[in-house]
Design a protein around this nucleic acid. Structure first.
Length: 430
DNA sequence: CGACTTTGACCCGCGC
DNA sequence: GCGCGGGTCAAAGTCG
């Protein structure tokens, strides 16, 4: 019993801090009561004490066995998920290869088109009946942007890169990034702002994403009284990655973090999982800018789509889960992908039930997902202890970070190619 | 003392 | 051309 209680205390420690001393007192009381019931009252009678100890040992053993069994089951489920992930990944890779082939052919055709005409691969879906949407659905603004990028690509290909003065510093950073990237076409992709926004419930000023950040500015953006903070990655000097952090106006508990750029250094374990996903999302966005689903502003990551710049790609991971973290910013597609993690993480008990570790992305978030399930007075009493422990472990951010990192690492190793927006993100998972 | 945060100034793009 | 807003810089302050 003591073991269970201490486990609960450990896993809920941070939450206790959040919710005040109330729960701690509650646990303390329970502990004291049990001690009184099992120990102190019978302290005079040693034989009864021994038998009670035996009983409690047996109970402990059975409880531990139950825990072990549950962990085994959990392991099985996790394995199944990994297998499924791998399977999905290979399926998507096959689709991607086909699309890449088609797009390559279309690119050749497009180059032969007279100037001013719309290349076929931008106008229509290149070979995928079920893939993506036509660029015609995009706004004029976005089309102009697309034209601008195409011009730039052409200039680069012709060795004429005199357009730089028109770019702001950030874009120059992107040029720098492009220079690092080994693939020329991928480099041109980086000229486009690769942004991934993450919406997540978070009480702290920033999400703990495993990276080290330095704040370099703060602004009150128009339309939102909450200041927007600007951070720069300081894990390695010269790392071009930046992030903006701002609270959501509608729901102050939601933190919107926008990542921009690619790390040029190895990442910590927790950051690897996050960065991999963010990079994959960003890469995906860059390659799928023509495929916004304008009907609802949602783009399904699990669905392969037309890839107008696919010749620029090396290897990309498509996130094989269907979940809320897959939407193109519906207000402004040019602002990149929005990964909405506010649903999957708010209640990990249900997530854990249907999904072994809840939302795969939520692993690197700093939120406390178990707050709704275990900490309220009396609520946990109707759960078995083992269930509580399992849930607590599964909802432990560190555990989820480890799982997410492991999956990412597994996928990367399997493929033999790290993923990023043109730069390798090394696996630092153990 | 170095790393980090704060904050006003500055730069640049964009719309009118 | 001008004003506005977003993004960045850099000096001063803070902290461990």
């Amino acid at each position: 019993m003591d073991i269970n209680l201490s486990l609960k205390i450990d896993t809920e420690e941070e939450e206790v801090e959040e919710n005040g001393e109330e729960e701690k007192m509650d646990l303390q009381e329970t502990n004291d009561n049990e001690a009184t019931a099992t120990g102190e009252e019978v302290a005079d009678d040693s034989s009864v004490e021994l038998s009670l100890q035996d009983n409690s040992n047996t109970e402990e053993l059975s409880a531990l066995q139950m825990q072990m069994n549950r962990m085994k089951e959990e392991n099985k489920v996790l394995r199944r998920v990994v297998e499924q992930t791998m399977k999905d990944y290979y399926d998507l890779q096959m689709k991607f290869a086909v699309i890449q082939q088609n797009t390559h052919n279309n690119d050749k055709k497009a180059l032969q088109e007279p100037k001013g005409s719309v290349p076929e691969f931008l106008d229509a879906n290149p070979g995928g009946k079920d893939l993506g949407l036509s660029l015609r659905l995009q706004t004029d603004h976005h089309q102009e942007r697309e034209e601008g990028y195409k011009e730039e690509i052409n200039k680069k290909e012709n060795g004429n890169d005199a357009s730089l003065p028109n770019h702001n510093k950030l874009q120059r950073t992107d040029h720098h990034l492009a220079g690092i990237s080994s693939h020329a076409a991928a480099a041109s992709l980086h000229n486009r702002k690769a942004r991934v926004s993450v919406r997540a419930r978070c009480q702290t000023a920033t999400m703990n994403d495993g990276c080290q950040w330095r704040k370099y500015g703060q602004k009150i953006a128009k339309g939102n009284p909450c200041p927007r903070a600007y951070y720069r990655c300081t894990v390695a000097s010269g790392c071009p990655v930046r992030k903006q952090v701002q609270r959501c106006l509608e729901d102050m508990s939601i933190l919107i973090t926008t990542y921009e750029g690619t790390h040029n250094h190895p990442l910590p374990v927790g950051a690897t999982a996050m960065a991999s996903t963010a990079s994959a999302a960003a890469s995906f966005m860059l390659m799928n800018s023509s495929n916004y689903s304008l009907a609802n502003g949602v783009h399904n990551f699990t669905q392969s789509s037309s890839l107008p710049y696919s010749r620029a790609t090396s290897h990309h991971i498509f996130y094989p889960y269907s979940s809320p973290f897959r939407s193109i910013n519906p207000n402004d597609p040019s602002k990149g992908i929005v990964l909405d993690l506010t649903h999957g993480t708010s209640s990990s008990s249900s997530a854990s039930a249907s999904h072994p570790f809840g939302h795969p992305l939520s692993s690197w978030m700093q939120n406390k997902p178990s707050s709704h399930q275990t900490n309220r007075r009396g609520e946990k009493k109707d759960k078995s202890v083992a269930e509580n422990v399992t849930t607590s472990i599964a909802s432990d951010p560190k555990f989820r970070v480890a799982v997410a990192a492991a999956i990412t690492s597994l996928i990367n190793k399997e493929k033999g190619t790290p993923l990023s927006m043109g730069l390798p993100i090394r696996n630092s998972s153990p």
